[in-house]
């Protein structure tokens, strides 16, 4: 069994993520201590919530550096929706509360105000795609101007990034835990192709 930690920053759909990762043979824990972040095989930054609340709570628990260290040590991280946005420099949602600055990009308000529903993702210059199925999105802010080199994907006609992978850090704007079969296929793909995590 693999271990994963859902980072507790006071917001997020904890129950659905717990169920989802348990289904994928993870022992799921929930916390915000530095040693927990260092010792887990997979760190999950959950979605649903406001940028400011999450940043305030991350700063309060003093774990920003531990998360950044994981990225540079190429230990698996997945940021989902808000969790993806937290990996960027800053968000228009709360400009005076800087993000984790792991991904060199900005979170801005969507031109279309919000994207709620299902869409397919298209990878940029990458052929080994996980699935051609629809994923579930629910966001009103998105990530633009990503400067890093990595695996990138976009959804439909939207200009904001749907997926970005650098080192073993994965950011997804969609919710794999709510994307039915597509979400399950996606996590299996990450374990095999990106994280090299086995049971």
């Amino acid at each position: 069994m693999k271990k994963c930690l859902i980072l507790d920053y006071g917001v997020g759909n904890i129950a659905s993520l717990t169920t989802f990762f348990r289904e994928h043979n993870y022992i799921v824990s929930f916390g915000n201590k530095i040693e927990e972040i260092e010792n887990t095989e997979l760190l999950i930054l959950p979605g649903v919530g406001s940028f400011r609340t999450a940043v305030e709570n991350i700063n309060k628990s003093g774990v920003a550096t531990a998360i950044q260290d994981r990225h540079f040590k190429q230990k698996p991280i997945i940021g989902i929706c808000l969790g993806f946005q937290l990996l960027t420099k800053e968000s228009e949602e709360s400009p005076s509360f800087p993000g984790l600055n792991i991904f060199n990009g900005f979170t801005r308000r969507l031109e279309e105000f919000s994207r709620i529903g299902w869409d397919k993702i298209n990878f940029e210059d990458y052929e080994n795609c996980p699935t051609n199925d629809y994923f579930y999105f629910n966001h009103s802010f998105g990530i633009y101007e990503l400067q890093n080199f990595g695996i990138k994907a976009f959804a439909g006609t939207s200009q904001c990034c749907a997926l970005f992978i650098e080192n073993s850090t994965v950011g997804v704007q969609f919710h794999p835990e709510r994307s039915q079969n597509a979400g399950k296929e996606f996590i299996i793909w990450l374990e095999k192709e990106i994280w090299n995590l086995n049971d």
């Binding site: 997020g12 759909n13 659905s16 169920t19 989802f20 649903v48 709510r178």
Partner: peptide, 29 residues
Amino acid sequence: SLHISTPITYGGGITCVSDAREIIRAGAE
């Protein structure tokens, strides 16, 4: 606990921020 991977939206009796936060934490999107 049924391994539901479909987006859930929940309404009924939400009167404050705390109600909404707990519902999201319990599994609704």
